[in-house]
Design a protein around this nucleic acid. Structure first.
Ligand SMILES: [Mn+2]
Ligand SMILES: [Mn+2]
Ligand SMILES: [Zn+2]
Ligand SMILES: [Zn+2]
Lengths: 137, 137
DNA sequence: TGTTGACTTAGACAAAGTCCAAGTTAGGAT
DNA sequence: ATCCTAACTTGGACTTTGTCTAAGTCAACA
């Protein structure tokens, strides 16, 4: 995570306590927090941090490519610090739990040129859905 | 679309003018309207229809399996009447245009058992992204 | 240590969706 | 044909999620 803060600095960004705290909260695997969840955890460490700053910082991290924005439901966007290893998501239809998964092959390869309609297709996001072990019981 | 209305009737649902209008609006291919867009078009035919009824009816049609709910961005959910032929979506990163596409093979097959973590996986939704011909220019 | 532009903040605003009490009506019963 | 009533619809309040702005603060450089 120091890497990240150094990269931000390299781009001429100020290392504020707010940005440090957001970066600390957004660390680990299988982490897919909403902006409000990030804010709640950030407040635990830095009580005066504002919602606006959390949104700003998340947007900056996404623009930097350091965090992924995931829209698995029609609700709040989720923020995923696991931006450096390509992966897809497995979502429980019961409880909403989200896991990182690594399918075989390149999902893009399944889309024939004839089905691309002249688009310059660059990414494929896959959401697998089903019931997790707990919700199946 | 009469099929749909008959199926609704078969489930003991009243055929109100409101439901009829929503069913008429949600017809065709490559149709991915937001709830507000459905409402706007419904109002053109039945001026007194309310937002609440549009949301209610869309939710009912989704529960019936007659309409798909699509979350391609972090914004409004979209409603897709093309529920009877499995397909995926190609979204323009520039203008947001959405096309139905039909990839080869079953996207589920790409997820090995070892990557399912005990989930009973039932569906895979794929969103392909890129620039459409207009936005590339 | 001072300066300054980048950053943060509170709160207003907007967009998307849910919920409810009160009024209306589709469709079976009479 | 008319009545009855549970199902449906409605407007508006409310919630959640996200954006924006003007005013205050501070990190980093000199
Ligand atoms: Mn992830
Ligand atoms: Mn579609
Ligand atoms: Zn679950
Ligand atoms: Zn486009």
């Amino acid at each position: 995570m120091n890497d990240l803060l150094e990269r931000l600095r390299g781009r001429g960004w100020r290392l504020t306590s707010q940005r440090r705290v957001v970066a600390e909260v957004l660390d680990g695997e299988h982490v897919h927090l909403t902006a409000d969840q990030v804010h709640a955890r950030a407040v635990a460490r830095l009580p005066e941090i504002s919602r606006a700053t959390v949104y700003n910082t998340l947007g900056e991290l996404v623009a930097l490519g350091e965090v992924l924005e995931v829209a698995t439901d029609g609700r709040a966007r989720r923020y995923d610090p696991n931006a450096h290893r390509a992966h897809q998501h497995l979502v429980c239809s019961g409880c909403g739990a989200i896991r990182d998964v690594h399918p075989q092959g390149d999902p893009l390869a399944a889309l024939p040129a004839a089905e691309r309609f002249g688009f310059a297709v660059t990414t494929a996001e896959v959401t697998y859905r089903g019931l997790c072990p707990d919700c199946r019981a």
